[in-house]
Design a protein around this nucleic acid. Structure first.
Lengths: 209, 209
DNA sequence: TCCACCATTGGACCAAAGTCCAATTACGCA
DNA sequence: TGCGTAATTGGACTTTGGTCCAATGGTGGA
């Protein structure tokens, strides 16, 4: 597993700030990718690289908040730490409401910045782990045939095999076969596991009434 | 069910602001309780009344953020909308990180304030409903004997009755009896329901290894 | 057209779970 | 000391679930 290294994506239009922060982060052993503009960042940005963004609020071509919304659209959301030169309260509140990890003001205290980044990286790791987990579950669900999905939907609501058979207009025997295949495909070793898997995959994966 | 009415708790040390906002909210049909200081508010505050708080950030005897922390300690957390006269960005960020619904600056736009309050009230209703739900589950769990809890812990991990019996140093028959009582006491009509109930109650309610 | 996959079913059978009946032992409390 | 509750177990039985074997009909693609 040769994953890309955990990275702090630094976006600031002030070269002096960029350089200073980059040096600080590197001295802390963090891997840094510095960008002078949001466009430059977006062009080189790989969503699959774990890490967080340290973002200057006010930049020439693209607003920090807009960039945040763009990043938030993709899953998993990349955690953002805002830095602002002359930001105002409404901007900071909007940033936080949109999920920013922190919103710091320049000149920024090194310790505050590092703490915020550590929180952001931790959040990224956590959401990535959860995301990978759910992706694996959905991958298994994708192996189910439509009929099996239908049976599963009834199973997880606690219906008996004979009831399911009646609902689907078939016989108990058939339901048993489907059920066995479901357990096998989803790699569930017990009904308890099956139910948790189904709940984790979410109702989106199951056909509706 | 004669529950106390949904209320907006207004806390501001400026009587003029207090009066103006109270009038605005009443004109919108909202039930308002106005307080001139955090102390006064705390003395009359009933956590069981549904509603939200509109809080001035800077007040003489008790800081708005401190009051927020005090309120956050109790369950369910009472949603807060901050109003600030001369607040700064760090204060707003801290408020948001501590769970504030919104952080508005004076002079406040009526529409913004009403929207924020609506969000806060909606959040309060949602968390209260969830809380009541969980309390009901815990109430049922409290009816279980220690032994039944132990059996339940094994059941929800998908163990077979005979395995559970071996783990607990008893026979399958006994496990079946406990299991039947568990289903009855928790009002679960299927294993699926039982598992969801147990997961909802959380691992806190179950004895550990 | 033939193959792979899906959905379906049958029979036989075993394992697991649930449900009646009943009973014993132990513990705390009035 | 008697009573209620908890925990335990036994027997007999039914229902449900799961697992072998095998088979059939449909459908879409190579």
């Amino acid at each position: 597993m040769c994953r890309p290294e955990v990275t702090v994506f630094l976006v600031d239009d002030d070269p002096a700030v960029l350089k200073a922060i980059e040096r600080l982060l590197r001295s802390e052993g963090l891997h840094v990718a510095a960008f002078g503009s949001p466009r430059e960042f977006l062009e080189h940005h790989d969503p699959d690289t774990p890490g967080c963004v340290v973002l200057d609020l006010s930049m020439p071509d693209l607003n920090g908040l807009d960039l945040q919304r763009m990043l938030a659209e993709r899953e998993p959301a990349r955690p953002i730490v805002f830095l602002s030169g002359q930001g105002d309260i409404p901007a900071s509140v909007r940033a936080m409401k949109q999920g920013a990890v922190d919103f710091l003001t320049k000149p920024v205290n090194d310790c505050d910045l590092l703490n915020a980044i550590r929180h952001a990286l931790a959040r990224d790791l956590a959401t990535r782990a959860q995301h990978a987990d759910q992706a694996e579950v959905r991958r298994r669900f994708a192996m189910l045939t439509p009929r099996e999905l239908e049976v599963l939907r009834h199973v997880v609501t606690g219906r008996l095999n004979k009831q399911i058979a009646a609902d689907l207009g078939t016989v108990e025997k058939t339901v048993k076969v489907h059920r066995a295949r479901i357990m096998q495909k989803l790699q569930a070793r017990s009904l308890a596991e099956l139910i948790r898997l189904a709940d984790k995959a979410g109702s989106a994966a199951l056909p509706k009434d």
